[in-house]
């Protein structure tokens, strides 16, 4: 994928909600294996992908995030047996609604990354940052009153 020329200076802000049991550990593995990805990605640790309240995502966009990714355990492997299924359903609904509101589907993503998949974590983040780069800064939902 080529980075859009117009967006070269653009530094996207990406919030990643990572399940403590899989993707957060996958991010740690990416770290200890020195598999780099851009510093634009900031990880927030949650006990399970099902802890991610749609409000968190709305809030992130409202405060100026350009992309939000939720990473959880592979279907069937949830540490709490079924949490990732809840996340999957909720996010499908939320992302459709966000798309309707003008936040392109490319800006939101759910990924399944296990604790052993450091390489996948890094590859996913690299690819996501590139996608957001091409989409350009997000203006929809952004609440300028939040800016200092």
């Amino acid at each position: 994928m080529q980075i859009n020329e117009n967006n070269k200076e653009f530094k996207p802000l990406i919030v990643a909600f990572c399940c403590n049991w899989c993707s957060y550990a996958g991010a740690d593995l990416a770290g200890s294996s020195r598999l780099s990805y851009p510093a634009n990605v900031k990880v927030i640790r949650v006990p399970c992908s099902c802890r991610v309240n749609p409000m968190f995502i709305l809030r992130a966009f409202q405060r100026g995030a350009d992309g939000v990714i939720i990473a959880g355990c592979h279907p069937g492997d949830c540490h709490y047996t079924s949490g990732n299924y809840f996340a999957r359903r909720r996010m499908t609904l939320l992302f459709s609604m966000l798309d309707y509101m003008g936040i392109e589907k490319g800006r939101t993503r759910v990924e399944w990354i296990s604790a052993a998949e450091g390489a996948k974590f890094s590859a996913t983040m690299n690819e996501f940052v590139e996608t957001i780069h091409n989409l350009g800064p997000n203006k929809k939902l952004e609440d300028l009153r939040c800016k200092e």
């Binding site: 919030v15 006990p47 309240n53």
Partner: peptide
Amino acid sequence: LKGFTTRQIMAEVDAIC
């Protein structure tokens, strides 16, 4: 959820964004 309250995670989102 104690330790991961809605307000706590919101505060993290705010700080990051």
